[in-house]
Design a binder for these strands. Structure first.
Lengths: 207, 207
DNA sequence: GTCTATAAATAGATAGAC
DNA sequence: GTCTATCTATTTATAGAC
């Protein structure tokens, strides 16, 4: 309906690709809502199904189980977010974190799923535990690489590896921590705070 | 049994004060464990009761309901922690945050309850929401006051109120964020990181 | 693709015996 | 103070009709 191509090629586009993917996307969308409000374990398939206007059985037909639905939600979120700052290097990449925060404020449901799971999935038996550990390691590595690039480009003064790791961990901590504050007391200026932290950090790295 | 006084004054010490408070404390202890593993909503009274070696009915007799048990856990945690850095002022109080982190690493269960609820209680309908909002506001205010004291004592250079608030929020964010990282990847040096952040912040405030 | 019906397990909570 | 027994509601998940 939204895609004009489906008028001419309607015969070749089928299987789970006509209304199926739309329904799937809708379920994921509602799952994001519910997971973000209750966390994973306390969320119910019934609640997700109700908001999607279908029955729990239909949801399970689509995803097989509650756990697979969660992992699908995480996969989609990760996929959408990962490309954004990839085009930049060095300090430009670090400054690109600001854009990521803007995107987060525009998708608070997804952000809340991520934050809720970051603490809930602390338990190694949690289905999202491997994903969260991987994601933190990757983010931390990205930050370190950007700092190393900035050094090579002469944008900042050299620092030893331990300091680089410290700065990467600290940036990641500030992002998570300030996002928690933003959810608890929404009057905080999330993007403004992060921008200020990044710019003052860059000044430190250059001094 | 552990208190020799109960031999001589056993008649005057009774009501909920002989074995009752010990049982209560034990239940709270196990509740901390379970809440920290599953979050509040997904935790079950049965699991808490099992770990305490009693039945769910007994737990409910003690606390009335699941929600009241949670609030009691939070009350105890808050009570134990609030006094520690109160004896210091200015920079000494800021540096006292380090001791708080040491205490946190020694009580990971309580810390995890707090972190889990910080995100889970984002939902305004969560029973711990008012508590968490209050606690964040109070911590933030404390940090700001310590900075103002440090200025008056001439320990750091004056800063405008907006900067003071920014620094307070950032410190709080770093603490929360680095704690999350510590739970997900325990090899991180929690106390070392916080100490480094505090000391380098003080240098900035003095420069 | 979605439904109804239902299974099997588990939840919070209450009543009443001891 | 703790138990057993029980209630009522809700959970994930499956089977099979449409």
């Amino acid at each position: 309906m939204t895609n004009p191509q489906s008028q001419t090629q309607t015969r070749r586009v089928r299987g789970p690709y006509r209304s199926g993917i739309r329904r799937r996307a809708q379920i994921i969308d509602k799952a994001v809502e519910v997971f973000s409000e209750y966390g994973y374990r306390a969320s119910t398939i019934r609640e997700i199904a109700d908001r999607a206007g279908i029955t729990p059985a239909a949801v399970l037909k689509h995803f097989g189980g509650k756990e697979q639905l969660l992992l699908e939600v995480l996969r989609v979120w990760d996929e959408k977010q990962v490309d954004a700052p990839r085009r930049h290097t060095g300090l430009a990449a670090v400054r690109g974190v600001r854009d990521r925060m803007v995107w987060h404020t525009e998708h608070p449901g997804l952000l809340e799923v991520y934050l809720t799971l970051a603490t809930e999935a602390t338990d190694p038996s949690h289905p999202a535990h491997p994903f969260m550990v991987m994601r933190y390691a990757r983010t931390q590595r990205n930050f370190e690489e950007w700092l190393a690039e900035a050094e090579e480009l002469g944008e900042i003064r050299p620092m030893d590896p331990a300091t680089r790791r410290y700065e990467a961990n600290n940036l990641l901590a500030v992002l998570d921590g300030i996002e928690i504050q933003w959810f608890l007391t929404p009057q905080i200026d999330l993007v403004g705070h992060v921008t200020r932290y990044i710019e003052s950090s860059i000044e430190r790295w250059q001094a």
